[in-house]
């Protein structure tokens, strides 16, 4: 069945709630309204407002109360309305959820999901466009998942809910309705922590995720038709823990690596991946490891011309691919 990314996430939530009465959703406007992006639409009617609960407008308690509920034995799915507004909850995520297991020597744990719509290209300006993965990928004890396709999204939200540890689940806002794909009716699984080669190729490797995955696939096709070169495209799917095996296997095969993310360059996840490649695949490299990322400015501006300038395009990626191929 064809679904949008958004519908696939909703379908995954629905199945998880049907299967397990401990699962509940807690966030701003998630109830009657079904969330400002409508991801939880219909779920309050189906499961009742106690299990699809509007929270007060306060992010720290959305996460903090979810932690308490998880310790009690429920399976909270917290929604942060926009990833940009997650910062008041940072202490609860980093100091509490991510450390509960370590600090109690394995006695307590926080099986909970924090869903956060992220990313730009929707005229959201500085405070409705941000990518936040780099901040949270630094935190041991927290898993960070960012699916790019409906197929992966449905299975990964279910895997996140079933996971015994806290998972930050990032959903690209522009991809929500733009990206459609086949989702099987029958049950299937996608594990957290596994990247996937979304396009096979032997000339160079692109490592990316989210909306940029789709741009990268387009650029790879253009490169194939214009230059006859085959780019392999690795979709990370999970940002932490990184699937280093899949990344290194591809780079060892192609000898060239380009890492792409929408988030700003400096301190981005691309730096970590570049370091891994340099450390573990140095002798296979046939050129410098390259990064293509957002500019190092505070956040994405509003005016269409400025927003457009901030975001990477298929052509930006194609240019970079040609430069790397020519090296």
């Amino acid at each position: 069945m064809e679904m949008t990314l958004l519908e696939a996430i909703r379908a995954g939530l629905d199945e998880a709630m049907a299967a397990d009465e401990r699962v509940f959703i807690f966030g701003e406007d998630v109830g009657k309204r079904g969330g400002v992006f409508r991801v939880t639409e219909g779920l309050a009617d189906k499961y009742g407002e106690a299990r699809v609960m509007d929270s007060p407008l306060a992010e720290s308690i959305i996460v903090g109360a979810s932690i308490g509920a998880a310790c009690y034995g429920l399976r909270p799915v917290a929604e942060i309305q926009f990833a940009d507004f997650i910062w008041p909850a940072t202490n609860q995520i980093v100091s509490e959820a991510a450390r509960m297991r370590y600090r109690s020597n394995g006695v307590w744990g926080c099986p909970m999901v924090i869903r956060a719509p992220y990313g730009g290209g929707i005229h959201g300006a500085l405070y409705h466009s941000q990518s936040i993965e780099a901040f949270f990928a630094h935190v041991p004890g927290l898993k960070v998942v960012a699916p790019s396709t409906p197929y992966d999204a449905k299975a990964l939200i279910k895997a996140a809910i079933a996971d015994p540890d806290p998972v930050l689940f990032l959903e690209h806002k522009k991809a929500y309705r733009l990206i459609k794909g086949e989702v099987p009716e029958e049950a299937y699984e996608v594990p957290i922590g596994k990247a996937e080669v979304k396009r096979a190729g032997s000339d160079l490797t692109i490592i990316t995720f989210g909306l940029m995955l789709h741009y990268a696939l387009e650029a790879a096709e253009k490169l194939a038709s214009s230059a006859g070169l085959q780019a392999e495209v690795v979709d990370l799917r999970t940002i932490r823990p990184l699937d280093t095996a899949t990344i290194l296997q591809s780079v060892r095969k192609t000898g060239k690596a380009l890492i792409i993310h929408e988030d700003g360059l400096t301190g981005g996840i691309g730096g970590e991946i570049a370091a891994l490649v340099a450390e573990h695949a140095f002798e296979y490299l046939d050129g410098p490891v390259m990064r293509l990322a957002g500019p190092d400015i505070p956040a994405m501006p509003f005016a269409a011309s400025l927003e457009h300038e901030y975001l990477l395009s298929v052509d930006d990626i194609l240019d970079k691919l040609q430069a790397i191929a020519a090296y």
Binding site: G68, L74, P76
Partner: peptide
């Protein structure tokens, strides 16, 4: 905040 969350969980149940 965690205590409120335990209370919330009991309330939901």
């Amino acid at each position: 905040a965690h205590a409120a969350g335990v209370g919330l969980a009991i309330h939901i149940r």
